[in-house]
Nucleic acid binder design. Structure first.
Lengths: 340, 340
DNA sequence: AATCTTAACTAAATCGGTTTAGCTACTTCT
DNA sequence: AGAAGTAGCTAAACCGATTTAGTTAAGATT
C-alpha cells in the first residue's frame, strides 16, 4: 500500500494539483470543473485510497478540524467518561479530538495549551487546574474559542459548563440532616479549586439552615497528591471516641473509596455508626457494602454541551447559544446514609 | 501574546532562518554557529515564548514525535488507565500521544489507523477489534512501527503485549474448584476476540483437570453491545432451580457488575448460594458486597512495556528487546468466592 | 471583425518549518 | 604567495496540501 499524494493523482490524470484539491474538497462545481474530470479524480482517489496529509492540510489552511481536550487525568473515570462523550459528539460534528492530561500541574497545563495551539487545534475544552488565569485571559484576548468544563474561573468572563457544586453538596448534606444526623464530617481536598470551595460552602449552608454551628474540626482537607496517606489520620480524628461524627460527606469519588476502605479497616459500622455520602460516583457504588448514596454528575451533558458551545463558536454561528452553563446534579439515594 | 515564528526571530536578529532552526534544535554546535549567536537566538526565542508549529515541523521532517493509541473505548476504566500510563511513559521519552476510540468497530479502526498515519504519527499502539488483519499486515509490510496490546492476532507475527488470559482464567476457576464449587457458570462475550476465546479455554482446562464434564449450558456468551439486557436471562438460566450453578466466573469487569446487580435483584446470596469471581476489576471491587475476587491485570506494565517496545523500534535501536510479551495476571482473593 | 463572456482549467505563492549544498572571509601551512 | 582548511554563516529546495489570480479557447454579442 504505497501512499498516494495529490501530486500523484494530478500527474496520473494529467490535471493540475489545484483541480484535484478542489474536487476532493467538494469545490469542483463552484469552480466549474467539468463533471467528467470530477468523476475521474474522485474515482482515482477512491481507488487508490487517497487520504490527505493532515499536517499539510492543517498547515496550509491554518485549520485542522481538530479540537483539544485538556483534563487533569485521563485515568480518572470522571474525566475518561467526559473524554469518551466529547470524542463521540465531536466526531458527530466532524471534528477530531486531541486529549492530554495536565496531572493538575499548572505549568504542564500551560505547555499543553501552547502545544495544542501549535498543532492548530481550532478550539479547546479545558478542565483547568485553575492556576492559569493568565493563559486563559490571553486565549480570550486572542479570541481563541474555548470552553472551560468542570472547573472555571469565576473572576473571568468565559464560556463554561460546570455542575452546581454548591447545591449538589448542600442537597446531600441536607439529606443526612433530614435523616437525623447532626454531627457531619466533611472530607474534601485542600481548597484551590473553585469547585471544591463551592462544595464546602454547600456543606456549610446546609448546616446553617439547620442552625448547626460550623465546626472546623469536622472538616478534613487533604492534599490531592497524598490523600491515600492522609485519609488515615483524617478518619481517625473524625471518629475519635466519644466525639465521633455520625456521618461523613466525601467530596470526590476517590475520597469516598479510600475513606470507606479506612472505615471498614477500623471496623466502623456504616451506616449505623457513621453514615456516608459521596459527591460523584464510581460505576460500582451501587454494589458496594453499603451501596453509597451519591451526587451524580451529568457527565454526558457536560461533554455534549461543551462541544456544542465550542463548535458553535468555532464555526462562528452567532445564534445566542447560552455559553455559561451550571448544570444540576442528581442525588442517588442508597443505603449508606441509613435510609432504610 | 502575538505568535512568533522562526522568520520573525531571524529578521529581528539579522540571521537566517537556517541558523535559528539549527540552534533551536540543538544543532548549533555541530553546525558551527558561534556561541554568541546561539545565545542571542536562544534568549530571544525564550523571551518571546517561541514554540515551533508542530504541523510545519512534522510536515517537513516527516516526523512528529507523536505516537498514536487506538483503543476500543476511552470510557472503559481498563483502557483509560492504559491511556494514562501510556501518556506518562511516552512523555517521559519525549513523545506526545494521540488517542482515539474505535468503539469496537473494525471499519472505524481502519479509518483511525489511516487518519493517524496522515498525522504523521511515528508509531501505533493498538488494542484491536481483531477484525483488521489486512490493515495490520499492511502496516507490517510498510515496516511501520506498531505494538498490539490486550488483543493480538495470533496468526500474524507482530509485536504485542498481552496478559495471559488462559492462565488467568484457569487460575481463578481452579480457585473455585479448590473451594469445593463444582457447578461453575461462565458468563462471557460472544467469541471473536482471541482474549475471550483464551478465557473460555482457561475455564475449560480447569474443569478438565478436575475431571468435570464441560457443560455448554453453563456458558453464556453475551453480545458486547447488548449485554445489559442479555444478562438478565443469562443469570436466570444459570440459577434455575433445582439445577442452579454454585458459582459464576465473569470474564470482564462490566459483566461482573451487571451480573452481580442482577443476582442481588433476584435475591441470590453471594457467595453462600452462588460464589462469583471476575476477570479484571474496577477500583471499588474490594468494597463491594461481597468484595469480589478478581484477576488483576498488570495495566501499568502493559502500557510501559508497549511504549518501550514501540519507541525502541521507532528509534531503530536494534538491541534485542523481547517484542512479544505475555504478562501474568494476579489473583486478588476476596470474599465473593466464599473463602472465609 | 472586434469585443465580451464564460467554461474549464492551471501556475505559482503560501503555510512554517527543516535541511542540503554552498558561499565568504580568515587563518594556517608549505 | 598560493593552496588548503575552517569558522560562521545563508539561499533555496522541500514537505504536501490550499488558494489566489490568472490563462486559454470557444462561443456569444454587437
Amino acid at each position: 500500500m504505497k501512499k498516494v499524494f495529490l501530486k500523484d493523482i494530478a500527474e496520473e490524470l494529467n490535471v493540475s494539483k489545484t483541480a484535484v484539491s478542489l474536487v476532493l474538497n467538494n469545490k469542483g462545481d463552484e469552480n466549474k470543473i467539468s463533471q467528467e474530470t470530477q468523476q475521474r479524480i474522485i474515482e482515482f482517489a477512491r481507488k487508490h485510497n487517497y487520504v490527505p496529509n493532515q499536517l499539510a492540510r492543517g498547515l496550509s489552511r491554518g485549520k485542522s478540524e481538530t479540537i483539544g481536550l485538556i483534563i487533569p487525568n485521563i485515568s480518572d473515570t470522571f474525566y475518561s467518561k467526559i473524554a469518551g462523550y466529547v470524542e463521540l459528539k465531536a466526531k458527530d460534528l466532524g471534528y477530531t479530538v486531541l486529549f492530554s492530561s495536565s496531572n493538575e500541574d499548572p505549568k504542564k497545563e500551560g505547555e499543553l495549551i501552547r502545544s495544542m495551539l501549535n498543532r492548530q487545534v481550532e478550539g479547546l475544552i479545558i478542565a483547568s487546574t485553575q492556576q492559569n488565569l493568565k493563559e486563559i485571559e490571553s486565549l480570550k484576548q486572542d479570541k481563541f474559542p474555548f470552553v472551560l468544563i468542570d472547573r472555571h474561573y469565576p473572576e473571568s468572563d468565559t464560556n463554561y459548563v460546570v455542575v452546581d457544586n454548591f447545591n449538589g453538596l448542600k442537597t446531600v448534606t441536607e439529606h443526612l440532616l433530614e435523616l437525623g444526623r447532626r454531627k457531619i464530617g466533611f472530607v474534601s481536598l485542600k481548597p484551590g479549586l473553585e469547585a471544591i470551595k463551592q462544595r464546602l460552602l454547600g456543606y456549610q449552608s446546609a448546616l446553617e439552615d439547620y442552625k448547626i454551628d460550623y465546626n472546623k474540626e469536622l472538616v478534613k482537607e487533604l492534599s490531592p497528591k497524598n490523600y491515600e496517606e492522609e485519609i488515615k489520620s483524617a478518619i481517625s480524628e473524625l471518629i475519635k471516641f466519644p466525639n465521633s461524627v455520625d456521618s461523613i460527606v466525601f467530596s470526590t469519588h476517590y475520597l469516598t473509596s479510600v475513606g470507606l476502605r479506612e472505615l471498614k479497616k477500623k471496623n466502623v459500622k456504616v451506616p449505623q455508626e457513621v453514615a456516608i455520602v459521596s459527591f460523584d460516583e464510581l460505576t460500582a457504588f451501587d454494589l458496594v457494602d453499603p451501596p453509597i448514596t451519591s451526587v451524580i454528575q451529568p457527565v454526558k451533558d457536560i461533554a455534549n454541551i461543551a462541544v456544542d458551545i465550542l463548535i458553535n463558536e468555532i464555526e462562528g454561528k452567532e445564534n445566542g447559544f447560552e455559553n455559561k452553563r451550571i448544570l444540576d446534579s442528581k442525588l442517588a439515594i442508597r443505603k449508606s446514609c441509613g435510609t432504610f
